[in-house]
């Protein structure tokens, strides 16, 4: 702990990592709550995996073709948004099975990403960091981009709170009440996509879903309304990402995996605690 604080004062990368965790937590609390109550975590996970296509291709074009301006994070944003819109359009306007499409996009996104990365010299460390997180590799430029995404997600999520709430709770009624349900559903998927991109940086593609849903699940036990759930899960998520960073730093554990384990343990403790409390009462 002492070493961590000492290094935090000295090293930019550690400060960036800490700020990244906090930024990610805010988006995570707000959008994660919508994802959990609307039960679209499978969609969020599909989007997360498709992100590899964007990161892989961006890396390829940058390394092999010298397109310096293409950051993997831009690729991730593009891939996530395209996937979100395809899933949204399929589920709103076609009679295809939604879960089949999600599964396909999930796997194809991974495949495209892996092919590009395999053709990029020196690929293996990049692939590992995309899959399992690279919070210690965040640059100042990444940080600004993430702050921008975060701002967008938070402003939209808060400004249209009532509308997203209605679309998540009872979309048929929302339509009758005069809401453009398709617009709000697509917007929600796009916000989910942007949040996923921010989270991928923190815990990696494979583990995004846990960070997006577990803090919300814990908050669900103690919240009576959606906004309480958002505030509480954002705070929990800040605690978990920071703790993940602190705990993993000295023994040099993978930060993403450590963060997820902390989330999981906290969730388990709360579930068991609540179970015992209910049994004790009844």
């Amino acid at each position: 702990m002492y070493n961590f604080l000492n290094d935090l004062a000295r090293f930019n990368f550690l400060q960036y990592a800490l700020v990244t965790g906090v930024l990610a937590s805010v988006a995570c609390g707000i959008i994660g709550t919508y994802v959990v109550v609307r039960r679209i975590s499978f969609i969020a996970d599909g989007i997360a995996h498709s992100v590899l296509a964007g990161m892989g291709s961006a890396l390829f074009f940058r390394t092999v073709h010298g397109w310096e301006w293409v950051s993997p994070l831009y690729g991730a944003v593009a891939a996530a948004l395209v996937t979100a819109i395809i899933i949204g359009v399929v589920s709103l306007w076609t009679k295809e099975r939604e879960d089949t499409i999600i599964g396909a996009l999930w796997a194809v996104g991974m495949a495209v990403g892996i092919l590009f990365i395999a053709r990029t010299p020196g690929y293996s460390t990049d692939l590992m960091s995309y899959l399992f997180g690279n919070i210690l590799l965040v640059t100042e430029h990444d940080l600004w981009l993430m702050a921008g995404l975060d701002l967008l997600v938070v402003v939209a999520g808060v400004l249209f709170y009532n509308r997203f709430l209605a679309v998540c709770f009872d979309d048929e009624f929302a339509r009758v009440a005069g809401l453009r349900v398709e617009v709000f559903y697509l917007a929600l998927l796009c916000l989910t996509a942007l949040t996923v991109v921010v989270l991928v940086t923190v815990v990696g593609i494979v583990m995004v879903i846990a960070l997006l849903t577990l803090p919300v699940a814990i908050a669900g036990f103690f919240s009576r309304s959606l906004w309480q759930m958002m505030a509480l899960s954002a705070m929990l998520s800040m605690v978990f990402t920071t703790a993940g960073l602190v705990v993993s730093y000295e023994p040099n554990y993978p930060t993403g995996a450590t963060t997820i384990m902390i989330c999981a343990v906290a969730y388990l403790v709360v579930v068991i605690g609540e179970g015992l409390r209910k049994r004790g009462r009844g």
């Binding site: 009532n162 509308r163 709430l165 048929e172 009624f173 929302a174 009576r224 309304s225 959606l226 759930m229």
Partner: peptide, 23 residues
Amino acid sequence: AHLDPQFPVSVMDVVLMGRLGLT
């Protein structure tokens, strides 16, 4: 019957949804 019984929403918030087209 189609509403999610676990959805965290208060009675007041549910009723306010009726105002979405007018607010």
